[in-house]
C-alpha cells in the first residue's frame, strides 16, 4: 500500500510514492542513498539511526517514512555547512570520540540536539543525554570529551 510523501532532507525537497511500511531509516538509506544513518538494533535502543526531524533528534527506525510527510529532516550528511565541519564532527575527531564509526552519526545527531537545548552541559548531563545511544568501542569517555569540545567551541 503506497502513500505520497513530500519532505525536505538536508535542504533538498523530495516527493516520493512509497510503501507505507517503509521505515524512515530505510527510506533515507535505500531510497535517498543517505547511508550515514545506520541501523544497529530493532528495538529503538541503540540510537545509530538518530536524525533530526523538525530540529529534534529522533530515532528514524521507530517511524514509518509516511509519518515524516511534510517534515524537515537533517541527517549526518547535512551537518557540514559550506564545507565546514560541525563543531561536533570536529570534536569527535579531535578527541578520538570514535573507533569503528558505526554509532558515530547517531551520537553526533543526538549530541547536536543536546547542545541546542543546553549549550554548556555538565559531564553528567552529557552522559545522561546520550542514554539513547550505544557505543561498543570507546567506553564513551572520548565521546563525552568530544561533546565538551563542541560545547566549548560554540
Amino acid at each position: 500500500m503506497s502513500f505520497t510523501i513530500n519532505l525536505t532532507v538536508n535542504g533538498v525537497n523530495y516527493n516520493d510514492v512509497i510503501d507505507t511500511r517503509v521505515l524512515l531509516v530505510d527510506y533515507l538509506r535505500e531510497k535517498l542513498e543517505l547511508t550515514g544513518t545506520h541501523v544497529g538494533c530493532d528495538t529503538s535502543s541503540c540510537g545509530s539511526c538518530t536524525i533530526h526531524l523538525d530540529g529534534k533528534a529522533m530515532k528514524s527506525c521507530t517511524m514509518f517514512a509516511v509519518q515524516a510527510d511534510g517534515a524537515d529532516i537533517t541527517t549526518i550528511e547535512g551537518m557540514c555547512q559550506n564545507g565546514e565541519l560541525h563543531p561536533l564532527q570536529e570534536g569527535f575527531k579531535e578527541e578520538h570520540g570514535l573507533q569503528c564509526g558505526f554509532c558515530t552519526p547517531g551520537m553526533i545527531m543526538t549530541a547536536a540536539d543536546l547542545l541546542k537545548n543546553n549549550s554548556k552541559p555538565s559531564e553528567e548531563e552529557i552522559r545522561c543525554g546520550l542514554d539513547g545511544n550505544f557505543c561498543r568501542c570507546t567506553g564513551y569517555q572520548n565521546i563525552v570529551k568530544a561533546v565538551q569540545y563542541a560545547a566549548d567551541k560554540s
Partner: peptide, 9 residues
C-alpha cells in the same frame, strides 16, 4: 522516560 530521542517523539 526512555531516552532523549524517544522523549522527542
Amino acid at each position: 522516560i526512555g531516552d532523549a530521542q524517544v522523549r522527542n517523539k
